[in-house]
Amino acid sequence: MTAATGVSLFVAVPAAVLGAVCMGLASAAQARATKEVEAGGPLDLTLFRRLVGRPLWLIGIAGTVLGLVLQLVALAYGPLLLVQPLLVTSLMFAGFASARLERRRPDRMMTFGALLCVAGLAGLLVVARPSGNGATLVTGAALLPLGFVLAVLTLLGLGFGAFSRSASLRVLGLAVATGVLYGLTAGLMKVVANQFRIGAGEPFRHWTLYLVCVIGPIGFLLSQNTFQQGRFLTPALAVITALDPLVGVAIGLSWMGESANGTPLALFGEALGGLVIVIGIVMLSTRASHLSAEPVAGSGEAAESEHRGPGPGSGDGYGLAGSSC
């Protein structure tokens, strides 16, 4: 590793982790705020109008903006294959912050599931040894294979989110579409960040900045709808934060010329790290379903109810409360 690379990682890694902290805290604040307004449909375009003016939601917006700035800094100095997976750590911060906002203790199993996600990520990064720092996207037909897959995933997610009769599939669909759009936005932001390093006016000469300005807000709107539909924040956010870096890694490898360790042993280790992340997500989802299904405690058992978490909604594997606020 050259001295220049070392300096770049010294900037990129702390910026990515601090960005994850901001994103996690912002997600918890926004999720709580969405429960304080009237619930709408799974693709409610008027949700922003009801949220504007809510102090907690505005705090979440401030955290999101700061997190995005830190993510831009990280992407300007580090490869997508490093920066995006580090954002999975936001899941842990969001889980603890959400528990505090709901005045309950963090559930041990959900905490362990979040730690599994982070541990799997750490192992994956150690084995993969991401390298390269692409600054531009490929052009022409090279964009099509991955672009087609991302488009199909997004449309399927939106379809399930809008039309599925299953509460769990609606939340899953929204979370999948959000994660894909977040990962795509991050890949484009990587290009924009490198353009900013050339000059302040350089990004305005390219289409990537304008596409970010379209895709980013759509992804954010979907995330707010996902938070409102979900009974618990952590499971839905786990799906989003798992897909976001996976899409970012795919973009780095397919569109930006970055690379990772591809030996058979390394691929096995990377697959094992990915499996640990999936197990963590399954634990989070299963535990959220169990908590949602628990009966509401009577007034004499208020302390125990607070310890277990919020009362029941129409619980499911993704922690959904179909119509609760």
Rank of each mutant, 00 (worst) to 15 (best):
Y210I: 08
V83W: 01
A33V: 08
V17D: 00
V276T: 05
P245H: 10
L87T: 05
E36R: 12
A135P: 08
R103C: 09
N194D: 12
G157W: 06
G157Y: 04
L43T: 11
L124N: 00
G322F: 05
G41C: 07
G78H: 01
D107Q: 01
D316N: 15
M109K: 06
H206C: 02
A20H: 02
L115P: 06
G248D: 10
Q71A: 10
L246W: 12
F232H: 10
A297H: 07
G157Q: 06
S292I: 00
S27P: 06
F163D: 00
L45R: 15
A200G: 11
L156I: 12
L272F: 13
S223R: 03
L51R: 01
G317K: 03
G120D: 01
G183Y: 08
Q224F: 11
V88R: 04
V180F: 13
L72W: 14
L150R: 10
R231S: 09
M256I: 15
T178H: 03
A26W: 05
N225D: 07
S98R: 00
F196P: 07
L155Q: 10
R197S: 12
A33N: 08
A297S: 10
S131A: 14
L243I: 14
V171W: 03
G179V: 14
L243P: 07
P85W: 03
S164V: 04
L101T: 07
D244I: 13
Q30F: 02
L246M: 11
S259T: 15
S285C: 04
F93G: 00
R49F: 01
Q229P: 01
G300K: 06
G311S: 08
G41T: 08
G19I: 05
G300C: 02
Y77N: 02
P217A: 06
G219E: 10
A271D: 09
A260Y: 11
S164G: 11
L184T: 15
G41F: 02
S292G: 15
R129Q: 11
P217S: 03
R105F: 12
R105V: 13
F196Y: 13
A26N: 07
S8F: 10
L70V: 02
G19N: 03
G120C: 05
M23E: 05
G257P: 15
L18H: 01
G317W: 05
R205Q: 12
G216W: 09
S285Q: 03
T286G: 03
G40C: 11
L43W: 07
V13L: 09
M189A: 14
G201Q: 13
L81N: 08
H290C: 09
S323I: 08
T234G: 14
L82Q: 00
P79A: 04
G252I: 09
L80V: 01
G132P: 06
A4F: 02
F163Q: 00
L265Y: 05
A242R: 05
V191L: 14
G183E: 08
A135V: 12
G257L: 15
L211A: 12
M109L: 14
R197Q: 13
A99C: 00
H307A: 14
L181S: 12
I251L: 12
E38A: 14
S289K: 08
A303Y: 14
V21S: 04
S323W: 13
H206W: 04
M110S: 11
G248C: 11
G147I: 08
S90V: 01
V296C: 13
